[in-house]
Design a protein around this nucleic acid. Structure first.
Length: 875
RNA sequence: GCCCCAGUGGCGGAACCGGUAGACGCGCCAGACUCAAAAUCUGGUUCUCGCGAGGGAGUGGGGGUUCGAGUCCCUCCUGGGGCACCA
C-alpha cells in the first residue's frame, strides 16, 4: 500500500477551482449566523507579492477559515492600495502610463494571491485608483469640508526647485531632493489639511479602551504622537524698543508655571513673529535667524549639540514681580510649531534652560526643593532638578507642593486676565495635499469671485485625465492643457480646478468600510455597514502603528460626524505581525547575491556558501529584512510552484510566533514540505485500513489504547482551538504534530494484533482522531485538508464543515501525575486520583522513599499541597 | 536623552493565574531498511560530575519577596523599535 507522493501544486489548483466554482467564500449579510470581519492591510500593487504579503495574508486566512468553521459569517475581502508615487516613477522611467502599470501589477499579484488559496470573497475586490472608488472619497471630502474638518492654510513645505514639486520628508536626503539632488527650499504654500486635532482628546482617551485588544506598543506610540501636555498660557508684558501693538506682549505656553519665580530669561523661536519683526532692523539678528534655519534643515545632529541664543535687548516683565526684568533671546532650540513658540526659561528645573543659562550667564535659582534637602544649602549644579518637592524662593508659593503651586498660579493668571489653563497637543493637522498626478483629485474649484467652490456632488467624480505627460517637471495635472479650466459652478465664469491630489493615506483610511458594500451608490451602505462593522480582527505591519491606524481612527470619527458610519473605532482588535528576514550573501567583490544564486556546503559550524555560477566563496552576512537592495529575497511563486502553497503557509505558522520576526530558511521550508507529505501518508494509511466513514457504529466500550488516543485527540482539539483564537499558531502547530505521533503510534498497535482486549474500539478511535485531525489542519493547510477529507470518503467540502465539538469528559483524567518537591526542589512525582484530598496527597508524598532521603532525617515542619498541581514537603 | 518591547539548549521556540523548565520543530548523533545513496522509520540530544544508580548547576547579570520564581518587585547589562530641543 505504498502511498503516492502528494502532488501539492496539482491538487492545490484543483481545490482552488472547486472553491471558486462553488462560490465557497462569497459572503452576504443576509445570514442568521453571527458576523466576523477579518481584514489584513491591503497591498500596494508594486509588481509582485513578497514574503511579507504571504505572511500577513496567511495569518489572516487561518483566522478567517477557523471562524468560518466555528459558525461565523465571515467577511474576508481583498483590494488594492493603488495610488502612489511608484506608478509615476515607472511612468517617467519606462514611459508606461501609471494606470496601465498599476493594472498590470494588480493582475499579476491577484493571480499570486489566488495561488495561496486564501478564503477571500473576490467579488468585493476594488482598487483605490478607480473612479468607482474615489468618487466616494471625493464625496467624503466635500462632507468633511462642509463640517470644517477639511480646510486650507499656508504651511512650510519642502520644495524641490528643479522638479518644481513638494517633497515628503523622507524624500529629502541631507537637505537635497532624492531624485534631482537639488538643495531643498522651505516654502510657504497654501495646502489642504484635515482637522485631526479636533479629535486629539478623543483619539487619546479612546486608546484606554483599545488597550485590551490592541498591542501595547501601538497605543503607547499613538499616545506619544498625540502628545498631550497640560499647562498654562501666560502673557508677559514687553519693555524696550518700539513694538507694534500685537507684539507688545509675549504669550508663553508652559507646563511648569509653578516655577515662575525661578524664571531668569525668555526665549522665542527664530520663526516667531517678534523675532521676524526685530530682524528686519537688525542685521546681526537676521544673520542668526538665517543660521538657525540652515542648521535646522541640514544637520539635526548639530542642532542638538549646542543651545544658542541672540539677545534682542528687549526685556519681559515678570508677571508676579514687576521689578524683575527678563531678557528676551531668540534661541535655536525653540520650535515655532509647538505651543506659542516662546518660553520662559527656568534653569533650575529644566535641563535645556540650564544649559542655556550657564552659557549666557543668567542666574540659576532653585524653586523646588527635593524631599529631605536642606533649603539653605540646596543649589543646582550641572543638572537641573526635575523631580518632586516643595516650593522655595517663591514668595507666596513657598511650602506648597508642585501641584498646589500650579493651581495657585493658574488661578491668579485667570483672575488677572494674563493667562489661563491650557492643554497642548504635539499632534498637528494632517497635511493631505500632494502636488502629484496619481492620486485622488481634490474636488474643488477656485473662482476669482466665489473663492473655493466645491464641485457639485452630481458632477462627481472629478476624474483624472488619462492623456498626461511626465516629461516636464511639476504636477502633470497643473500643466495639462485643458483639464483644470472649468467654469465656476456658482457664477459660471472661467475658473480653475484644484490640481492637488490627496495623500494616499486618505485612500486607506476608510477602505475597511467600503468592503462592506463595495458597489453601494453612496460611500457606505447603512445596513451592510451596521451588520459588518467594525473590523473584528485587523492584521498588518508594525510600521503602520501610528499614521495609518491613527488616520483611520480619525476618519471614522469624521465619517460619524458626517453620518456615513455610526461607530467610533474602525478596528475592534489589532494584531501586528513581524517581518520576514533572511540571511544576506555577498560575493568577493562585494556584490549582493540572491539565495537562489548561492550553493551551500557542509552544515552547522562548517556551513559555507559558494556562488552557484562561479563556485567562488560567498560571505554569509547578517540576517536582515528581505529587501530588493540586499537581494535576500525569496520569490513566493518559486516556493508555491515547488512545494505548494500549503507548505509555504505551514512554514509561516510553525515555530515563530506571528508577532515576531520570522527567519526564512530553505531548511525550514523543506521541513514544512516533509510534514505535508507525512500528514498525507498517515491519512492514506488510515483511509486504507479504516475505510468506514465517521458514521460507523460507535463501540460500546473503549480499551485503554483507544481511550488514550481519544483523550489525546480531544485535548488537542481543545487547545488548538484556543491557540488559534489567541493567534498562537505556532503552538497550535506543535500540538498537531504531537497528535500526529499519537496517531501513528496507535496505527502501529492496531495492526499488531486484533484480538487484544486492550485495543477494544481502537480502530474507531483512530478513525475519529484522523477526522478531527484533518478538520483541525483545515485553517492552516486548506488544500491538503480538503484532499484528505475526500480520501477519508467524504464527498462534501471540508471548507463547509463545522469545527468539531470537544467531548468534555475526555479532557479530565481520573489519574493525574503531580510533582513532589522537598524544600522547593523536585525529587519525585506521584500518580494519584484527581479527586484525592489534600490529606491523601500529603500522606502519599510522605510515604515516598525519595522524600525521606531528601529530608536527610530532618523532621517535616510543613507540607504544602496544591490540589492537582504540586506537593512541597518542607523540613 | 526619554518611552516601549525582548533576552530560555547548537538554532526557532513552549511553559494557563507563581507550581515537574526546555513541549513541538530544525540541526546533530546512533540504529533500521538499502549493494549504495536518497526518501522513510525508530531511539537519543540543556550543561556538568559519575561506569552506574544518582548528584550538582541552570531561563542575560546581581539582589529581593515566597514553601516554591522563566513568570512578581528593585537594579544593572545587551539587542530591537519609536520619539527626539514638545517648554
Amino acid at each position: 500500500m505504498a502511498s503516492e507522493r502528494y502532488n501539492a501544486p496539482v491538487r492545490e489548483k484543483h481545490w482552488q477551482q472547486v472553491w471558486t466554482e462553488n462560490g465557497t467564500f462569497r459572503t452576504n449579510e443576509k445570514s442568521k449566523k453571527p458576523k466576523r470581519y477579518q481584514l489584513e492591510m491591503f497591498p500596494y500593487p508594486s509588481g509582485r507579492i513578497h514574503m511579507g504579503h504571504v505572511r500577513c495574508y496567511t495569518l489572516g486566512d487561518v483566522m478567517a477559515r477557523y471562524m468560518r468553521a466555528k459558525g461565523y459569517n465571515v467577511l474576508h475581502p481583498m483590494g488594492w492600495d493603488a495610488f502612489g508615487l511608484p506608478a509615476e516613477n515607472a511612468a517617467m522611467e519606462r514611459k508606461v502610463h501609471p494606470r496601465q502599470w498599476t493594472q498590470e501589477n494588480i493582475d499579476t499579484m491577484r493571480a499570486q494571491l489566488k495561488a495561496m488559496g486564501l478564503s477571500i470573497d473576490w467579488e468585493r475586490e476594488f482598487a483605490t485608483c478607480n473612479p468607482d472608488y474615489y468618487v466616494h472619497q471625493q464625496r467624503l471630502f466635500l462632507d468633511f469640508l462642509k463640517k470644517k474638518l477639511a480646510y486650507r492654510k499656508t504651511a512650510k513645505v519642502n520644495w524641490d526647485p528643479v522638479e518644481k514639486t513638494v517633497l515628503a520628508n523622507e524624500q529629502v536626503i541631507d537637505g537635497r531632493g532624492w531624485r534631482s539632488g537639488a538643495s531643498v527650499e522651505q516654502r510657504d504654500l497654501t495646502q489642504w489639511f484635515f482637522k485631526i486635532t479636533e479629535y486629539a482628546e478623543e483619539l487619546l482617551s479612546a486608546l484606554d479602551t483599545l488597550e485590551a485588544t490592541w498591542p501595547d506598543f501601538v497605543c503607547t506610540q499613538q499616545r506619544n504622537w498625540i502628545g498631550k501636555s497640560t499647562g498654562a498660557n501666560m502673557r508677559f508684558a514687553l519693555d524696550g524698543g518700539k513694538l507694534p501693538k500685537k507684539l507688545a506682549a509675549l504669550d508663553v505656553f508652559t507646563t511648569r508655571h509653578d516655577t515662575i519665580f525661578g524664571a531668569s530669561f525668555m526665549a522665542i523661536s527664530p520663526e516667531h513673529p517678534l523675532a521676524q519683526h526685530l530682524a528686519a532692523k537688525n542685521e546681526a539678528l537676521a544673520a542668526f535667524i538665517e543660521e538657525c534655519r540652515r542648521i535646522g534643515t541640514t544637520e539635526e545632529a548639530l542642532a542638538r549639540a549646542e543651545k544658542k541664543g541672540f539677545d534682542t535687548g528687549i526685556v519681559a516683565v515678570h508677571p508676579f514681580k514687576p521689578d524683575v526684568k527678563l531678557p528676551v533671546y531668540v534661541a535655536n532650540f525653540i520650535v515655532m510649531g509647538y505651543g506659542t513658540g516662546a518660553i520662559f526659561g527656568c534653569p533650575g528645573h529644566d535641563q535645556r534652560d540650564l544649559d542655556f543659562a550657564r552659557k549666557y550667564g543668567r542666574p540659576v535659582v532653585p524653586v523646588v526643593l527635593p524631599p529631605g534637602a536642606d533649603p539653605n544649602t540646596f543649589s543646582i549644579g550641572a543638572e537641573a532638578y526635575v523631580g518632586d518637592g516643595t516650593m522655595i524662593n517663591s514668595e507666596f508659593l513657598d511650602g506648597l507642593t508642585i501641584e498646589a503651586a500650579k493651581d495657585k498660579i493658574a488661578d491668579l493668571l485667570e483672575e488677572r486676565g494674563i493667562g489661563e489653563r491650557k492643554v497642548n497637543y504635539r499632534m498637528r493637522d494632517w497635511l493631505l495635499s500632494r502636488q502629484r498626478y496619481w492620486g485622488c483629485p481634490i474636488p474643488v474649484i477656485h473662482c476669482d469671485k466665489d473663492g473655493i467652490v466645491p464641485v457639485p456632488v452630481a458632477e462627481l467624480p472629478v476624474k483624472l485625465p488619462e492623456d498626461v505627460t511626465f516629461d516636464k517637471p511639476g504636477n502633470p495635472l497643473d500643466h495639462h492643457p485643458t483639464w483644470k479650466h472649468v467654469p465656476c459652478p456658482k457664477c459660471g465664469q472661467p475658473a480653475v480646478r484644484e490640481t492637488d491630489t490627496m495623500d494616499t493615506f486618505v485612500d486607506s483610511s476608510w477602505y475597511q468600510f467600503r468592503y462592506t458594500a463595495p458597489n453601494a451608490p453612496t460611500p457606505t451602505d447603512k445596513k451592510a455597514l451596521k451588520y459588518w462593522a467594525p473590523v473584528d480582527q485587523y492584521i498588518g505591519g508594525k510600521e503602520h502603528a501610528v499614521l495609518h491606524l491613527l488616520y483611520a481612527r480619525f476618519f471614522t470619527r469624521g465619517m460619524k460626524a458626517t453620518r456615513h458610519v455610526e461607530i467610533d473605532e474602525p478596528f475592534a482588535s489589532m494584531f501586528t505581525q513581524g517581518i520576514v528576514v533572511h540571511e544576506t550573501y555577498r560575493s568577493e567583490n562585494g556584490d549582493w547575491l540572491t539565495p537562489a544564486d548561492v550553493r551551500f556546503e557542509g552544515d552547522g559550524a562548517n556551513r559555507k556558501a559558494v556562488s552557484a555560477a562561479t563556485g567562488r566563496p560567498v560571505e554569509i552576512g547578517p540576517i536582515e529584512k528581505m529587501s530588493k537592495s540586499r537581494k535576500n529575497v525569496v520569490d513566493p511563486d518559486d516556493i508555491i510552484a515547488h512545494y505548494g502553497a500549503d507548505t509555504a503557509r505551514l512554514f509561516i505558522v510553525s515555530d515563530t510566533p506571528p508577532d515576531r520576526d520570522i527567519i526564512w530558511t530553505e531548511a525550514g521550508v523543506a521541513g514544512a514540505g516533509r510534514q505535508v507529505q507525512r500528514i498525507s501518508r498517515i491519512i492514506d494509511d488510515i483511509a486504507a485500513r479504516n475505510p468506514v466513514k465517521g458514521g460507523a457504529p460507535r463501540p460500546a466500550a473503549f480499551g485503554p489504547e483507544a481511550d488514550a488516543l481519544r483523550r489525546a485527540a480531544h485535548k488537542t482539539l481543545n487547545s488548538v482551538s484556543q491557540n488559534i483564537e489567541g493567534l498562537r499558531y505556532n503552538v497550535a502547530v506543535a500540538q498537531l504534530y504531537e497528535l500526529t505521533h499519537a496517531l501513528s503510534g496507535a496505527l502501529e498497535k492496531s495492526s499488531a494484533a486484533a484480538q487484544d482486549p486492550a485495543r477494544e474500539g481502537l480502530d474507531w478511535a483512530i478513525r475519529e482522531a484522523a477526522e478531527l485531525y484533518v478538520l483541525m489542519i483545515g485553517p492552516m493547510l486548506p488544500h491538503l485538508a480538503e484532499d484528505c477529507w475526500a480520501r477519508l470518503g467524504y464527498n462534501t467540502l471540508l471548507a463547509d464543515q463545522p469545527w468539531p465539538e470537544v467531548e468534555a469528559g475526555l479532557l479530565v483524567d481520573d489519574q493525574i501525575t503531580i510533582a513532589v518537591q522537598v524544600n522547593g526542589k523536585r525529587r519525585d512525582e506521584l500518580t494519584i486520583a484527581r479527586t484525592a484530598t489534600k490529606a491523601e496527597v500529603e500522606a502519599a508524598a510522605l510515604k515516598l522513599e525519595t522524600v525521606a532521603r531528601a529530608l536527610e532525617g530532618r523532621p517535616v515542619t510543613r507540607v504544602i499541597v496544591v490540589p492537582q498541581r504540586i506537593v512541597n514537603v518542607v523540613g
